[in-house]
Write a protein that binds this DNA or RNA. Structure first.
Length: 499
RNA sequence: GGUCGCGUAGCCGAGUGGCUAGGCACAGGUCUGCAAAACCUGCUACAGCGGUUCGAAUCCGCUCGCGACCUCCA
């Protein structure tokens, strides 16, 4: 922790030096998914972004408690409920239990996270598992006079809160403006003011997810879960709260209000928000009907996808852009990322295998200095609000150096032994540990396949010695058709990559 | 309508007062039986119009275009 980390705090709208509440420790809370449906490409962004944040904080030596919730209660409107309304006897039989649905999509979410090589959070609490904590918190807020009950529902009194606290600061909202905008919302008539939000909702008879509470059967409001769970696992005030920009209002603004009243002080020191993934310039989202689900992305099974995209390619594509910029989806962009990622990864693997012998001094001082500079800058870039785009750019600056050493265009001795070692460690640390990349071939069934390919490579070699290029080309071309690319290396060996 | 943000080369995207980011594509070259890969070289942009400044893509103003949030949303 000798380095100073600066991050952009959405709350103050400034880059600030990060100072943890407890030295050496970081409490990080990130809004997790609502598991009422399949995760899509848009969801990938925050979880990859904050995975890197988590990884980097650990790299700096912090002990991170990373809490990411699963929202499995409340406002569902999809399959489960629809079946319930339609109610035919047959539908009744086929209908999914809410928990069944939640379980299915939670598993699918985990599957996606694993493929992205996201580290597991330290704690992944569910909203349904913390009903008691939520009720307790609502009680506290009521006791302090900032919430009121109507017909079994409890609402937070925003106007009262705004009179004494900076409501709207996080999202740049002005209470008067909000009061003016007209919206027809559920339960509007019950509220004192339309800006009030629900802490607890009374459940209509057909609502399956319901719990007992001091106010009757119902379910928790959307915002209270994050406040209750972050409080439980990270304390009344914690370091970093992350999430998508679209959650700034009303979700995060409400979290601040609730927690501030319940605990007498603001809950979070640093708010971080990632920007959206767009498609044709429009935000990817359920309401726009333009989502590409993760399952579709990885399989290529979607009308606008020209091909499947590997999770690592998607990860690379996301990290190539700074997290606070929008990122526009296109096949072209993903395909460019795929090529770039392969190039970077191959150079990385190559470098780890390369050795440098002989005199420890550099024969090319200028190059040596450049390499040192590129490596050292990596930390600076991360310390400047997690600029993974710049990190990747610098790694690419080093790729030709690595490849040139391998190809013999330059000697490894051009750079000093120290510099060589530094570069090796920098790649390993950054590519694998911090950016969290891994190779494209996940299925390591190499054994038999490798022997078969080795045989073919041997036959081809013989053919080449006999100058029987028809045979050698046939082997290479047919294998290429099957997705196995052969590469004649400089030193006469042959390597292959499987698509 | 309100609030906020963005407009960078063929495409994707960093940067943000002086120092050609990077990737992909494209063109030429080296290497190679050929190919692929790799390496070298080239392609030098910041929506428009004003202003501030010795100097602006970067600061300020206006105009045009786009988007996000204001409702569930990562």
């Amino acid at each position: 922790m000798t380095q100073k980390l600066f991050l952009y705090n959405s709350y103050t709208r400034e880059k600030e030096e990060f100072k943890p509440i407890t030295p050496g420790h970081v409490g990080l809370y990130v809004c997790g998914p609502t598991v009422s449906g399949e995760s899509h490409l848009g969801h990938a962004r925050p979880y990859i972004t904050f995975d890197v944040v988590n990884r980097y904080l650990q790299h700096l030596g912090y002990k991170v408690r990373y809490v990411r919730n699963i929202t499995d209660a409340g406002h569902f409107e999809e399959e489960g409920r629809e079946a319930e309304d339609k109610v035919a006897a047959k539908a009744q039989l086929e209908r999914m239990e809410p928990m069944e649905l939640v379980h299915k999509y939670t598993n699918l979410f985990h599957w996606g996270m694993r493929l992205f090589n996201n580290l597991d959070p330290s704690i992944e609490p569910t909203a349904t598992g913390h009903i008691i904590e939520q009720i307790d918190m609502i009680r506290k807020i009521m006791d302090k006079g900032y919430a009121y009950e109507v017909n079994g529902s409890v609402y937070f009194d925003v106007k009262k809160y705004a009179a004494g606290y900076p409501y709207g600061k996080l999202s740049g909202r002005i209470l008067e403006d909000l009061m003016e905008t007209t919206r027809e919302l559920d339960g509007q008539e019950e509220k004192k003011n339309k800006v009030d939000f629900a802490l607890w909702k009374s459940a209509p008879p057909e609502h399956i997810m319901r719990w007992n509470s001091p106010w009757g059967e119902g379910f928790p409001g959307w915002h209270i879960e994050c406040s209750a769970m972050s409080r439980k696992y990270l304390g009344e005030t914690f370091d970093i709260h992350g999430g998508g920009m679209d959650l700034q209002f009303p979700h995060h603004e409400s979290e601040i209000a609730q927690s501030t009243i319940a605990h007498d002080h603001a809950p979070v020191n640093y708010w971080m928000h990632n920007n959206m993934i767009t498609i044709n310039g429009k935000k990817m989202g359920k309401s726009y009907n333009n989502v590409i689900k993760l399952t579709e992305l990885f399989s290529g099974n979607h009308p606008i996808l020209e091909q499947p995209y590997h999770p690592m390619v998607v990860r690379f594509y996301i990290l190539q852009t700074h997290y606070r910029s929008t990122l526009d989806f296109s096949n072209e962009a993903l395909q460019a990322s795929e090529k770039a990622f392969r190039r970077l990864w191959e150079a990385h693997e190559l470098l780890q295998k390369l050795e440098r012998n002989g005199d420890a001094d550099a024969t090319d001082k200028e190059l040596d200095a450049k390499v040192v500079a590129f490596c050292k800058e990596l930390d600076d870039f991360m310390n400047d609000d997690f600029n993974t785009a710049k990190v990747i750019a610098n790694l690419f600056e080093l790729v030709p150096v690595i490849n040139s050493i391998k190809a013999g265009h330059i000697s490894a001795a051009a750079i000093s032994a120290d510099t060589f070692g530094m570069m090796k460690i920098a790649f390993k640390t950054y590519v694998e540990d911090i950016l969290g990349m891994q190779g494209l071939q996940m299925q390591q069934d190499s054994g038999k396949l490798d022997r078969v390919l080795s045989l073919l490579i041997e036959i081809r070699k013989d053919a080449k010695v006999r100058k029987d290029f028809a045979t050698s080309d046939q082997i290479r071309n047919k294998l290429a058709e099957a997705g196995v690319m052969l590469k004649d290396e400089k030193d006469g060996t042959v390597t292959y990559t499987i698509e």
